[in-house]
Design a protein around this nucleic acid. Structure first.
Length: 466
RNA sequence: GCUCCCUUCGUCUAGCGGUCAGGACGUGGCCCUCUCAAGGCUAAAACACGAGUUCGAUUCUCGUAGGGAGCGCCA
């Protein structure tokens, strides 16, 4: 039997990092077995679902590269199917109409809670043939078995047993003529022949009810894998207050999809001591059977480390498209500056994110905007005149402008003066960037371009005290 | 309140009855060095607690404590 998994977000917001990990795990499980990964949008809540959210989720998935094989399917387009199944259940006596009003329900629950009981529907209309009250549109409830237990053989949690006596008759069809979540998922997962349901562990408690519905429908029950939550750094539920929760927010913050994916795959899953996984390795090694039991916290520092790892090791050409996106966002005219690929090479060991990279690349776009006072005071001093002049002369003579050529020219200049490279590099660094910190001096000068570099040296020379 | 789940360094985790409890991020130190980084070496840092099972428990069982989820005509 081929493995079929699905990711089923509800379009009420952006693609959350927790959702992204669920999607990743489902995707990997399918890929590992050469099966299918299905995307289904659970938009039965018409109040909260929006088209913008659907698009945001699609965009997030696309940026991560989690491609689905089937879908996206929309539950709102399958209402006829749910209605048909609900009526089958009704006719088979496995479901029934319930005329209890919301007010009565609320009063009942309040009373139960007051008595320390678990609030639940009491089954009033389960076997009743009274004339229904006027003015109430009924809902349809599922007849949950009264006795016995439901066993969930979870791939993550192991065997979890629920007592049917704890479960009440859940609503499968609302009075506004729409299906409920617990009903829709079962019909969909059965119709779409999902073999492995991988989802957050907030659904573990729903699982026995769903298994009972599968049984009533005479459908095979899929395997379940309930993933532990991802919490914020402080152990509280992950929220905006902790930083980005939206996957595309991580893009804006300068992370590469490879890094985010790698970070996410190690949250709750591991393969020995291995930290770095290519997508191919993830697909070959991941198994829902190996997922941890406990919740994990989101640690941006480790994500940053991974991001730099990918910046350093990925072919720069692969990083360029993302960098261009960030340069534009930073308001820079990409085509007026140095080659983005050269920027990547110069800065990838010095930044953790592309947002930082774009920001640091500013000095090579347009004219120098200003000098750091401390840097000027320390390095643009009288003693810097000779080194700067020598550098100017050496750089002016460079044929075939490149980082290597600049490197040779500056070394020769330093040697000619009988000083270490540092004596030339620091004043030159201030001349080129206006600051004391930048990539290695050869790249710093190279990226400025020959004409601009010479211009900046002249400007620095003019600032020197007599 | 009831039901269910969880518990190894600050964080992510390895471990699957006998280990100096391993790795990674972060942190400290040293080295390298044109600044900043990167890199190399190195240090500190954990089995929540209590019973039991066993020759022996981080590992198995049961409690306790502490977290979390669910108990909707939300998903």
């Amino acid at each position: 039997m081929t493995v079929r998994t699905r990711f089923a977000p509800s379009p009420t917001g952006f693609l959350h990092v927790g959702g992204a990990r669920t999607a990743l795990f489902s995707y990997l499980e399918a890929r590992r077995h050469g099966g299918q990964f299905i995307l289904r949008v659970e938009d039965t809540d018409r109040e909260r679902s929006t088209q913008a959210a659907v698009q945001a989720i699609l965009d997030g998935m696309a940026w991560l590269g989690l491609e689905h094989d089937e879908g996206p399917f929309f539950q709102t387009q399958r209402f006829d199917r749910y209605r048909q199944v609900a009526h089958e259940l009704l006719e088979a006596g496995k479901a029934y109409r319930c005329w209890m009003s919301k007010e009565e329900l609320e009063a009942m629950r309040a009373d139960q809670e007051a008595r320390g009981l678990k609030p639940r529907y009491n089954g009033y209309w389960r076997d009743r043939s009274d004339t229904p009250p006027a003015g109430v549109t009924p809902v349809i409830r599922f007849k949950n078995p009264l006795h016995g237990e439901v066993v969930v053989d979870d791939r993550v949690r192991g065997r979890v047993i629920f007592d049917n006596a704890e479960l009440d008759d859940l609503i499968i069809w609302r009075s506004d003529d729409s299906p409920t979540y617990n009903f829709g998922v079962v019909v969909d997962d059965a119709d779409m022949r999902i073999t492995d349901v991988i989802r957050g562990d907030d659904h573990l408690n729903n699982t026995p009810r769903q298994i009972n519905i599968y049984a009533a429908l005479g459908k095979p029950v899929p395997r379940f894998a309930h993933l532990p939550m991802i919490l914020g750094p402080d152990g509280a539920k992950l929220s905006k207050r902790h930083g980005a929760v939206n996957v595309l927010g991580y893009r804006e913050d300068g992370f590469l999809p490879q890094a985010l994916l790698n970070y996410l795959v190690r949250l709750g899953w591991s393969h020995g001591d291995q930290e770095i996984f290519t997508m191919v390795e993830m697909q070959a090694l991941f198994s829902a059977d190996d997922v941890n039991h406990s919740a994990s916290r989101f640690d941006v520092e480790k994500l940053r480390w991974l991001n730099q790892h990918y910046l350093k090791t990925l072919d720069p050409a692969l990083v360029v498209p993302e960098l261009r996106w960030h340069l534009q966002r930073a308001g820079l005219d990409v085509d007026s500056g140095p080659q983005p690929e050269d920027i990547v090479i110069a800065l990838r060991e010095r930044v953790h994110t592309l947002a930082e990279m774009a920001d640091k690349a500013r000095v090579w776009f347009g004219p120098l905007t200003g000098y750091d006072e401390a840097a000027v005071g320390k390095h643009l001093v009288a003693a810097a005149r000779a080194p700067l002049q020598a550098a100017h002369a050496a750089l002016a003579g460079v044929q075939g402008w490149s980082a290597a050529a600049v490197h040779d020219a500056l070394n020769a200049a330093a040697q000619g003066l009988g000083v270490g490279l540092g004596k030339v590099a620091q004043p030159l660094r201030v001349a080129i960037t206006g600051t004391q910190v930048s990539p290695s001096i050869d790249h710093t000068v190279f990226l400025a371009g020959q004409a601009e570099a010479l211009r900046r040296i002249d400007a620095a020379l003019a600032k020197l005290p007599a």
